[in-house]
Each structure stands twice: as C-alpha cells, then as structure tokens.
C-alpha cells in the first residue's frame, strides 16, 4: 500500500483543491486537503498516498543525503581497492 516514489507537482487547481502530479511519467491527481496550500508549488517534489499529497519532500535534504552517499561510495571504492591489493599480498596460494 505504501509506495514512496516521489512525484513532481506540474499544476495546481486551487478551485478543486487538487494538484496534478507526475509520478515516473504517469500523470495523476492528488488532493491537497492534508497540506497547507501555500506550501505546495509547481516544481515541488511530494509524496502521494491513496490520492492525497501527504507532504513535501525536502529538496535540500534529499540532495544532501545523495551527496553523502556519493562520498561514502568514493571513499569506499578507494578503501576497497586498497584492501584488494593487501589481500592479494597475503594470498597463500601465490605462485601456486
């Protein structure tokens, strides 16, 4: 029931209190009853659950986490490369 795929707001219909969102290329409608109207703008990323906008995704936060993961990845790669070399050094079967 819970999908966490983010959607992007493409249009807001304030009369019917509905946002038109794009979820992985699929256009859907979502009710704005659970959010402060002024909070949601076209271009925002939101989570939709059973036809309602639940919240806005904090862009900066998402970007920050993605950046941290990239850094972990880069460091780990180097680390892992080193480990491989070391392990290779210790390999008992060398030359066998």
């Amino acid at each position: 029931m819970c999908l966490s795929i983010p959607s992007k707001v493409v249009k807001i219909d304030s009369e019917s209190n509905i946002a038109i969102v794009d979820t992985m290329g699929v256009t859907r409608k979502a009710g704005l009853e659970l959010v402060e109207k002024e909070d949601i703008k076209v271009g925002d990323y939101v989570l939709i659950h059973i036809g309602f906008v639940m919240n806005k995704i904090d862009d900066e936060d998402a970007l920050e986490s993605l950046k941290v993961y990239k850094e972990i990845l880069e460091i780990m790669d180097e680390d892992e490369r080193q480990k491989l070399v070391l392990e290779d050094d210790n390999c008992e079967n060398r030359g066998a």
């Binding site: 795929i5 983010p6 992007k8 794009d22 992985m24 271009g43 990323y45 995704i57 862009d59 998402a62 970007l63 986490s65 993605l66 993961y69 990239k70 972990i72 990845l73």
Partner: peptide, 18 residues
C-alpha cells in the same frame, strides 16, 4: 529551480554500488 532531478530520487536511493 531545484537542482534535484526526479531521476536522482528514483535511482539515487536504490543505487547498487551505494
């Protein structure tokens, strides 16, 4: 304009290397 792309949100948190 946000620097964040939808693709980052889809793929970034599922990246196999990460």
């Amino acid at each position: 304009m946000s620097e964040l792309q939808l693709k980052d949100l889809y793929d970034g948190f599922r990246n196999p290397d990460t």
